[in-house]
Structure formats: structure tokens, C-alpha cells
Design a protein around this nucleic acid. Sequence first.
DNA 1: TATGGATTGGAATTATTATTTCATATTGCC
DNA 2: GGCAATATGAAATAATAATTCCAATCCATA
Lengths: 281, 281
Amino acid sequence: MDERVPRDFETLRTTILERRHSLPKRIAQIAAYALDNPDDIAFGTAASIAASAGVQPSTLIRFAQQLGFDGFTSLQLVFRERLRERNSSYDERLAALRAKAEEGAGHRAIFDGFVAAASTSLNDISGRLNEDHFEDAIALLAKAETIYVLAKRRSYPVASYIAYALGKLKIRNQLIESAAGLNAEMISFASPRDAVIAISFSPYAPAAIEEARVISEQGVPIVAITDSSFSPLAQFAKVWFEVAEADFAGFRSLSATMALAMALTVAVGEKRRDAGRKRKT
Amino acid sequence: MDERVPRDFETLRTTILERRHSLPKRIAQIAAYALDNPDDIAFGTAASIAASAGVQPSTLIRFAQQLGFDGFTSLQLVFRERLRERNSSYDERLAALRAKAEEGAGHRAIFDGFVAAASTSLNDISGRLNEDHFEDAIALLAKAETIYVLAKRRSYPVASYIAYALGKLKIRNQLIESAAGLNAEMISFASPRDAVIAISFSPYAPAAIEEARVISEQGVPIVAITDSSFSPLAQFAKVWFEVAEADFAGFRSLSATMALAMALTVAVGEKRRDAGRKRKT
DNA sequence: TATGGATTGGAATTATTATTTCATATTGCC
DNA sequence: GGCAATATGAAATAATAATTCCAATCCATA
């Protein structure tokens, strides 16, 4: 074996792609197969791989030799190394983190627990977002004159970030909170041309539910982020999202809710900008 | 092979863990090795694995047979299948999400972008948390009479969640915000027996920095969460954490900061509970 | 279209590897 | 402490797989 033998998969891949056109027919055939089915090369036997690729075992060995390996076995090692070095899967990683958090005492375990909860929530929502609802919500919010943001207690941080972001995007918005106890008045200004983003999770803060009820009775459309279809918030909402946040030590992660909230906000900003551009042309 | 042979890795794992204590010594030894080094089982030869685990090849085969396989080869298939089926790596997954977010237009891409940003941030902080600083911060906060929470603008949601959690844990705290413009007075009440959690990221909100300066001059110890050692917040802090939050569309993720903040809060709660218990006994 | 060189197929050979066997050691039980 | 049952070690054997070899085929070139 000379010194230029590819030792890692990426180098090997590049080498094969470079030489692709100067390779004899059957060798090229096995080369293509190898890049398309690297797992098969890693696990199979020379005979089984050759059969799958439609060539003779000897061709497979010639292929390896052309690349500078002294036989199929050494070529196969590269393909195995690739699988070995590939990081552990997302799920395993999470499971490990969660396990450490559960069994392990100590403060580090607490930290791991929160990271795991946040990751789990993100992972979950990433696969579950209903795109139609998402589009509906964006459309609804994009045409609102003022966006009211409603969330209490543990959901409040999300609301405050939404309000911050909407402000940055120059979208008129009103966070429903008032040190002076003027929430009811604030709500009474909302009209059907406005819209609400309401966020509440079980146990639903009574104030949030009550305010959502009032505001929906005024005909203001509500986009809700909540945790189940039984949520009282869902019944008042035009569009609602179910977000399952994992919790740790009694505190729910907000990461998935945050990601959704930010996506909604920025998407609304984009949609408005597009609409504005259209009107001008 | 009877019908109860584990065909997937998880089942196999569970089976092994169940029987762990009823297995003969050497078999148990190889069982432990198998669960600790699944990749070696997938790729190695019976002889090489046996050598690494410090047993004879025949023991390895007996182990496989105990589990219902008819030999090492069929056991090995399960370990190989695991590698095959294992999802793409965490990094690959994130890269895919990010790529989709960048190239892809549409609103779904925005959502993916925020999820990717949050995941990246969590992943990053998970490996970088300095445990010594973490312990120091917890000790410092646990002995404070009142914990002041200071954060403005984009960091404010984190502060509000900390305040919520501290309240839930019955830890006296004060969020430094005042609609009536009384922040300066609020700060003046803080004493060296209190402590501050301050959060600020570039571009540092001037108000946050100024308040941190004043409060540190009063001798109140500060735990800071910020983004670099050049942060003006770091110079006022007794302990500080560097958190690198990924951003998307101009908005920074808060997921890592949130996780750290919650971990701090809960850890402080635990430490106080422990200390209280000790004093009583 | 004839010729030399390169390529390919298939079987024979060699090597490696899993499995079995049997002697020995260990353990649990009366 | 002795006996049977179980577990272990080491080497022999069987199975499987990689590699080699050679004849057949293909292809480019004169």
C-alpha cells in the first residue's frame, strides 16, 4: 500500500469521484454502488456486495486495488470507520443526557436535565408543526392592525419576547399587562381588525383564559399556543398550536414555544413586507 | 432460535439488563462489554471481541446462545442493524435543518431556522458549561438574602422566567424593572448580603450595564450571563458565564440562556433546602 | 478484420473466522 | 467435604469468506 491510500471516507469519496470517468466499466459500476450504498460495503461480504452490485467478487477486489488498497478488506475498513465515527444518534444522545440528569445527583445533573428537556421539546415540535395552521396563523396576524400579546405567569417570558421582536420589526403590538390594573380597558380597545397571540399551558392561568374569552367575544381573532385540544384556550382560538414542552424539576421548557413564537413573528414580518412591496408596484 | 429472540438493539439491551444478575461471571463480563462497546461488537471478529473483553471466543458464543441466538453471527447482526438504522448524526441533522432554513424560502424555513438555532445553542452550551463557575454561582446565590434579577430588552424574557421560578421556589427576589422609573431606588436597596443575576448580550443595553455598575459598586456580588469576556458585564461580575446563542433572521435564540438560568435557579433552590435541613438537625 | 492489451467471469485456492468439542475448573448443595 | 451441575479455557474442526489465477471476452488500433 503506498502512502496515498485514502484513509478516511471523505478522501476516498473524492478520489473515486475524480477517477470516475477513467475507470473500466465494471469497476465504475462497483464504484458507483459503493458511494450509493456505503452501509452495504461496511457490513457485507465481498460476495454479497458483488452480487448486489451485479459484478464478480474479483472485480470488487480489483476496484479496491485500483484505489491503492491491498484488498477488499482494507477498503472495507474505511467504510466501517465512517460508521464508527459518525456521532451517536440524536435520540441516544438525548437519552444519555436525560439518564445522567435522572440518576446523577449534583448540580450538573440539573443543568443536563434542563438542556435535555429543551432539546426534547424542540425535537418534538420540529416534527409536529402543522404547516397549514402555521400559514393560517401568519395570514391572520399579518393583516391585523395591532397584534395583542396575551400570556401570564410561566408563559409570560414568551409573550415579552414576542413583543420585543414585533417592536423590532416595526409591527404595532400591545402586550396585555398593566401594573396599573388596566388590562380590561386595554382589551376593550381591540377590534376585529386586530389579532391576538395567546399563550397558556396547563394549569391555565385564569386571568389569561378570562381575557382570551372576553377578547374573542369582541370578535378579535385569536392565535393560540397551548398544550392540548382540551385547553380552554383552544376553544376561543381561530388557529391553535399544540406544543408539548418537556419539563424538568417542575419547570417546563419554553424552547419549543419560543421557537414557534419567533417563527410566527418573523414570518408575519416577512409577509407584511411582501404585501407592502406588492401594493407599491 | 425460538420466537423470543431480541431482533432489535433496544429489546436486546433490555433483555441483557434484566438478566444481568443471573448470568455467570464471564458471560456477565461479555454482556457488560457488549453494552459498553456496541460498535466493537458490530465490527469485530469473535476472536478480537473476546480478547478485548478478556474472555474466550467460546464464551462469546455461549453468551449469544443464552440470549436465544444460534451463534455469535446472528447476535452480531443485531448490533449491525443498530448502526444501520441509527438516525443520521446529530450534526448531520442540524446541518440539514439549517440548510433547509437557508435555501428554502417559505415560512416553514423560518420555523426550521429558529429550531436549528435553538438546538445549536443548546448543543453548544451543553459541552461548554464550566462546572466550577456553575458551583460558585450557585453558592453565591444560595446565600443571598434577596436575589435581584437584571436584564433588559432581548434578555428580559429570561429575567422574567427566573423571577417566576424563584417565586415558585419561595426564594425572595426582585426583578429590576419599574414602570414608574424607580429602578435607581430599587437598586439602592441592594446590599452585599444580596446577589444579582444579570443577563446581557451584545449590543449591551446601556441601562443594564449602568445598573450593573452601580449595583456592583455597592458591593453586591453579580452572577452574569453574557456572550464574551469582552462584555462590559463580565468586568462587574464575581462569576460569569459565556453563552453563545445562535441567531436566525436577526433574532437570537434564548434556549441556552434559558436552560442555564433555570438550572441555576433550581440548583439554588436545592442548595437552600439542603442548607435549611442541615441547620435544623 | 486481425492483433495486442486490457478487462472480465468463474472456479480453485488460501485465509480467516465461527463453532464445536472436550478436558478442567468452579460453584452450589446435601 | 464430597458430589453433581454448571461454567470456563484451549485447541480442533467446520464454515465462510477473501483472494488468486487463468481462460474468455472485449475493445482500440493499425
